[in-house]
């Protein structure tokens, strides 16, 4: 499944970058994340609750950041497991400096397995879109705080 999106945030690139690298803030703005803990350099454990149409479940697993170029881009590698199936994704996140604004865009591919793949697939892209929207609106909100 393709995951793409972009949004312009009302903040300079350095600030956006700092927020993305802050575990506490990230846990707040990523929809569904109930716990995020740093376990090493660019390595995190994550627990999330996600409802996808007819299937819902509690996911846990790891997040790692790689190919980091400060204030510009990084790749988010997600591996989440649950009783309803597993999701593995590699998402490239790019920040574009627009002066006082920053364009945040991402592009990635998710591989699903288990019940999630069997029964969730057809509603997933819709869910992914709504999660994306929620992520960006959470980000906007966080910036205003």
């Amino acid at each position: 499944m393709q995951l793409t999106g972009s949004h312009t945030l009302e903040a300079p690139t350095a600030q956006v970058w700092k927020m993305l690298m802050d575990t506490e803030i990230l846990a707040k703005i990523v929809p569904g994340i109930s716990r995020l803990e740093k376990i090493g350099e660019n390595e995190y454990n994550a627990v999330s609750e996600i409802k996808l149409g007819p299937v819902s479940g509690s996911f846990s697993g790891g997040l790692t950041l790689s190919e980091i170029i400060d204030n510009q881009e990084f790749t988010l590698n997600v591996s989440q497991n649950s009783k309803i199936g597993n999701a593995d994704a590699a998402i490239k996140i790019i920040l574009k400096d627009l002066g006082n604004q920053t364009e945040l865009s991402f592009d990635g591919d998710a591989r699903l397995s288990g019940l999630l793949a069997r029964t969730g697939q057809r509603v997933l892209s819709g869910v992914a879109n709504s999660l994306t929207k929620q992520f960006f609106s959470n980000f906007d909100e966080e910036l205003q705080n």
Partner: peptide, 12 residues
């Protein structure tokens, strides 16, 4: 292409 049956239910 991962060998997942993506329409394995009566919804799909």
């Amino acid at each position: 292409d991962n060998g997942q049956l993506i329409n394995g239910s009566y919804m799909d």
